[in-house]
C-alpha cells in the first residue's frame, strides 16, 4: 500500500508535468523550437484565474474559462509579434528569444501583482481512504481536467480538418506547402491550443501549490525532460513520458531520497538519450 500511495503521488506529479510537456511538444511539432516561455504562459494562466476569482467572488469555472481566453490571446500575440519573425533563423535563436519572453512575462506579472503569494480558491477536503490507499478529491478533479484537456487537444489534432493540416505541417513542411496548406491558419490553431493547455495547466499547478511569479519557470526543466523523453514534437509521447517520469520519480524516493528525486527526471533523460538519441517515442527527424 505504501508503494501504491507513492505511485498515486507520482501520477499527480506526472499529470502536473504532462500539461507543460504537452505544451512544449505542441510548439515543437510545428514551430520547430523549444519554447522556454511555456512555464511562464502557465504562470500567466494561474494569475488570470486568481484575478477572475477576486472579481467574481470565487468562481473557479469562470476563472478557468476566462484564463483560457486570455492566455490563448497572449500566446497568439507572442506568435504574431515574436516567433513569426524567427521562423527562418536557427532554433537556438528562437529558444533564446523565448527566454526573453519568459523574463518579460514574469516581470509584467510581478510589476502589477507584486511578489507576494496568491492562492486559487477551491474546496479543500480530506482524502478518501480505501484500506490505506488514499485518494485526495482534488486530485480526482486534476486528473479529470487533464484527461479532458488531452481529449480536446487530440480531438482537434486528429478529428478536425485543420488538425490534419497541423499534422501535415509537422510531418513535412515543404510537402504540406506544396499541397496548398497555408501555415497561417495552422499557426493560429496551434498557438491557441498552446494557450489553452497553458491556462488549464497553470490552474492545476496553482491549485496544487501557490501562485507566485516563478511557479511556471520552476517546473520548466522537468517539463522539458518529459517532452524530450517523449520525442520532441510527439504530443502523446510527451504526455506518456511525463506520467511515467512522475510515477517513477516518486517510486524511486525510498531509494534515492527526496532531495535527489528532483533530478531523477534529468538523470533518466540523459540515460535514455544515450540509449536512444531520438527519445522514447521519437523517430529520427520525423516527428509528428
Amino acid at each position: 500500500m505504501f508503494y501504491a500511495n507513492l505511485a498515486m503521488s507520482g501520477l499527480v506529479q506526472g499529470l502536473l508535468l504532462a500539461t507543460l510537456a504537452l505544451s512544449v511538444s505542441l510548439c515543437f511539432s510545428v514551430a520547430k523550437f523549444t519554447n522556454a516561455a511555456t512555464g511562464d504562459f502557465m504562470t500567466v494562466g494561474a494569475y488570470v484565474v486568481v484575478a477572475i476569482q477576486a472579481v467574481t467572488g470565487g468562481s473557479l469555472m469562470l476563472g478557468v474559462l476566462g484564463s483560457c481566453i486570455v492566455t490563448a490571446l497572449i500566446s497568439l500575440l507572442a506568435y504574431w509579434l515574436l516567433f513569426r519573425h524567427l521562423a527562418h533563423v536557427s532554433p537556438i535563436m528562437s529558444l533564446v528569444a523565448s527566454v526573453g519572453l519568459a523574463l518579460f512575462l514574469r516581470s509584467v506579472l510581478s510589476l502589477f501583482a507584486g511578489h507576494e503569494q496568491y492562492a486559487i480558491d477551491y474546496p479543500i477536503a480530506r482524502a478518501i481512504n480505501f484500506h490505506g490507499f488514499l485518494i485526495v478529491p482534488i486530485d480526482l478533479w486534476v486528473a479529470l481536467a487533464s484527461v479532458a484537456l488531452l481529449a480536446l487537444v487530440f480531438a482537434v489534432l486528429y478529428l478536425t480538418p485543420i488538425g490534419l493540416q497541423v499534422r501535415a505541417l509537422a510531418d513535412n513542411r515543404d510537402l504540406a506547402r506544396a499541397a496548398g496548406i497555408r501555415s497561417r491558419g495552422v499557426m493560429i490553431v496551434l498557438w491557441s491550443l498552446i494557450g489553452i493547455v497553458s491556462a488549464v495547466g497553470g490552474t492545476i499547478i496553482g491549485i496544487k501549490t501557490v501562485v507566485i511569479p516563478d511557479i511556471g519557470w520552476n517546473l520548466l526543466l522537468p517539463g522539458f525532460a518529459a517532452a524530450i523523453l517523449g520525442g520532441l514534437g510527439n504530443p502523446l509521447g510527451a504526455v506518456i513520458a511525463a506520467i511515467l517520469l512522475g510515477i517513477c520519480q516518486e517510486l524511486s524516493t525510498p531509494m534515492v531520497g527526496f532531495v535527489y528525486k528532483t533530478i531523477f527526471s534529468f538523470a533518466v533523460l540523459i540515460a535514455v538519450l544515450i540509449w536512444k538519441p531520438e527519445g522514447l517515442f521519437g523517430r529520427v527527424e520525423q516527428v509528428r
Binding site: 523550437f33 523549444t34 526543466l221 522539458f224 520532441l232 528532483t262 533530478i263 534529468f266 538519450l273 544515450i274
Partner: peptide, 28 residues
C-alpha cells in the same frame, strides 16, 4: 562524449539539465 550525437535542441536541454544535476548533487 555522451550528448554530442544529439541534435541541437536536445543538446541545449540536456546541458541545462546537467547543470541542475550538479547543483542538486552539491545540495545532497
Amino acid at each position: 562524449r555522451i550528448v554530442l550525437r544529439l541534435r541541437t535542441d536536445y543538446l541545449a536541454i540536456v546541458t541545462l539539465s546537467f547543470s541542475e544535476i550538479v547543483r542538486i548533487l552539491v545540495i545532497g
